[in-house]
Amino acid sequence: MGGAVGGLGGKPVLLTGATGFIGSAVVRELRRVGWFDWGPPLVVLSRSPPDWLAGSGVEVVKGDLAEPSGLRGIADGISTVIHIAAQIGGDAERCRRVNHDGTKFLLEEAEKAGIRRFLYMSTTAVYGHGPHRGISESLLAPEPVSATSLSRAHAEREVRKFGGTVLRPHLVYGPGDTWFVPGLCRLVQAVPAWIDRGAARTSVIDVDDLAGLVVRLMGLSWGKSRGAVFHANHPRPVTVREVVSTVCGELGLRLPVRNLSAEAHRARTRKVLPGLTDHQFDLLARDHWYDSERLWRRTDVDPGGGFAEKFARSAGWYRTHISPDAEEPVDIGVPET
């Protein structure tokens, strides 16, 4: 990895969202590959930088993308912007200010600084309702169904117009996950039944694998990737049955013993889990898997083993950090309201 830094030229990299689920995994991956020993400096934008970040060998710039007036010149001297920060949920105005307007501000600063390397972390949630079955990036147009996804779809459009690169993961799991697996556990416990035998197929990715792809891209020349969109998932989809069986087995939860049709299951979840939206339920009831081969070929990274093998590495973290019995609104994947 130390020699694969084409396009950086020794100049710093700007990272947003470093304290979040995916962004913190990127920092971990940079540390794992020894970036802070041989790589260009890392500049991190954070609203409230925690102590661990300040002591991790990065330069911290304190600020908020929703109020960027004090961040003028943030891209000066930078080679690359890795933009992972996002507003997930909340009111439409906040989503617009952070996701669309904040991204547009960063792009304007990059333009002023003469930077062309800009990577934006989006989500397959911009596609809206499924089913989606193995569609490639060029064959499926965004049709967002929430304020969050609408603002991120608008941000994507600005990034692509600029010539930046967009990544769209689907369901992300691993250390730091507060949405996907915790929500799945509460759903299985509240309604212990398969949805149409768990036959729906879905795309997933381990957060450390996603971070590895980002770090790999940081070190590559982007001539072929400007304006491109990549699905960022493990290339092999899994069934919901495999996901549930693996999670329950690793976390000591009882497997569903009955089978219900999607309609019957949804009627029951509406009563016992009112926080679960139709869109979130749909992610487990119908196919949502995306052709993700291009990104792995572009980065020349081996995706490695399947879900069961990779989830086992994170199971200890989940046992320590989540409470499947918690009575909270259930969210599956990215919260779409």
Rank of each mutant, 00 (worst) to 15 (best):
F162P: 10
S149I: 04
V257H: 11
P131M: 09
R157L: 10
E156H: 02
D331E: 07
E143T: 14
P237E: 12
A153H: 11
G17T: 05
W179H: 15
S122I: 03
L260W: 13
E108K: 14
Y127Q: 06
W179Y: 14
G2F: 07
L253R: 13
G316P: 08
Y318I: 10
R297M: 09
G7K: 02
D325A: 14
A326C: 08
L14T: 13
I84H: 03
V247E: 00
D196G: 07
G130R: 00
G183E: 01
S225Q: 04
V330T: 15
W289Q: 08
P49A: 12
P324K: 09
K161G: 13
H288V: 02
R266L: 11
T148D: 06
H100P: 00
F307S: 02
I115K: 08
I205P: 01
R186S: 09
G55Y: 00
G227F: 08
H154T: 03
P235D: 07
L210N: 06
L107M: 04
G130E: 00
H231T: 04
H231P: 05
E250A: 14
G9Q: 13
R268W: 09
S136V: 10
A141N: 13
A312V: 00
G252D: 08
L139W: 06
V240M: 02
Y120N: 13
T269F: 03
T178Q: 14
V27Y: 01
H154Y: 09
R286C: 00
E108Q: 13
K310P: 00
H279D: 05
E59M: 08
G34N: 06
S24D: 03
A285T: 02
V126C: 08
Q87R: 15
D209R: 06
H321A: 05
G198S: 07
E242D: 10
W222C: 13
F105T: 11
F230W: 00
L42H: 10
L150F: 12
T148G: 12
V215R: 05
A75I: 08
R313N: 04
L171A: 14
A200D: 00
P169I: 05
A147R: 05
H265R: 01
P324N: 08
A18Y: 06
V60D: 06
S136R: 14
P142M: 14
A232E: 04
R298L: 09
E137Y: 03
F105I: 11
F281T: 01
V257I: 10
V191L: 12
V61E: 11
A125T: 10
P182G: 04
S314Q: 11
R152H: 04
A155Q: 03
I135E: 12
E293C: 05
R117E: 11
